[in-house]
């Protein structure tokens, strides 16, 4: 099908890869269907979470483990049920990124990760109850404390 996107105009997508968010994304609860647009350049660790039904709504997302190797949380039981998660291998985790004018100050929200069951393509943004994590983690700063060169391992957990 054709998908109108915020940044890439109209693109052709595989409809079977649409991700369903039964409760939407917080503050955008009416948006239930999203599509992940990967960056064609593998060196760039960001993707887009593009709303299927609102072309103007798209989030930059990142694999949080790329800059926080120690990131960890337990997925609450109700979410495991809601997304019908059967195995940890089928879970993809993304953080929503805010990119300000000065892009070196971009931040990732580690307090409210986006969880996707890659088997049935159901997703949800959950809110953690964990004082270690905030809505703003400076990605480049925290990346410095991790070893460099690991940015290329996109998808590695």
């Amino acid at each position: 099908m054709k998908l109108k996107t915020k940044h890439f105009g109209e693109i052709e997508i595989d409809e079977s890869k649409i991700i369903h968010f039964p409760t939407g994304i917080i503050a955008f609860e009416e948006q239930k269907r999203f599509f992940i647009i990967d960056n064609p350049d593998e060196n760039i660790p960001f993707s887009w979470l593009q709303s299927v039904d609102d072309p103007d709504l798209a989030f930059v997302i990142i694999n949080p483990f790329l800059f926080r190797k120690d990131y960890e949380f337990k997925i609450p039981d109700n979410v495991i049920q809601e997304l019908a998660i059967q195995s940890p291998e089928n879970v993809a985790v993304f953080s929503i990124v805010v990119v300000p004018q000065d892009i070196t100050k971009m931040t990732a929200n580690l307090l409210a990760p986006v969880i996707i069951n890659t088997k049935n393509l159901k997703g949800k943004q959950i809110i953690l109850d964990d004082k270690r994590y905030k809505t703003k983690h400076y990605i480049l700063e925290e990346l410095k404390t991790t070893q460099t060169g690991e940015v290329n391992n996109a998808g590695a957990k």
Partner: peptide
Amino acid sequence: EIYLAIQEENKLAAQGMVDLKSLGELFR
């Protein structure tokens, strides 16, 4: 307050007019 902070953060994230290329340069 946590719920409101996340609403706010998501709204900010949705406003971004971002060029992923320039973002990528930072990582290169």
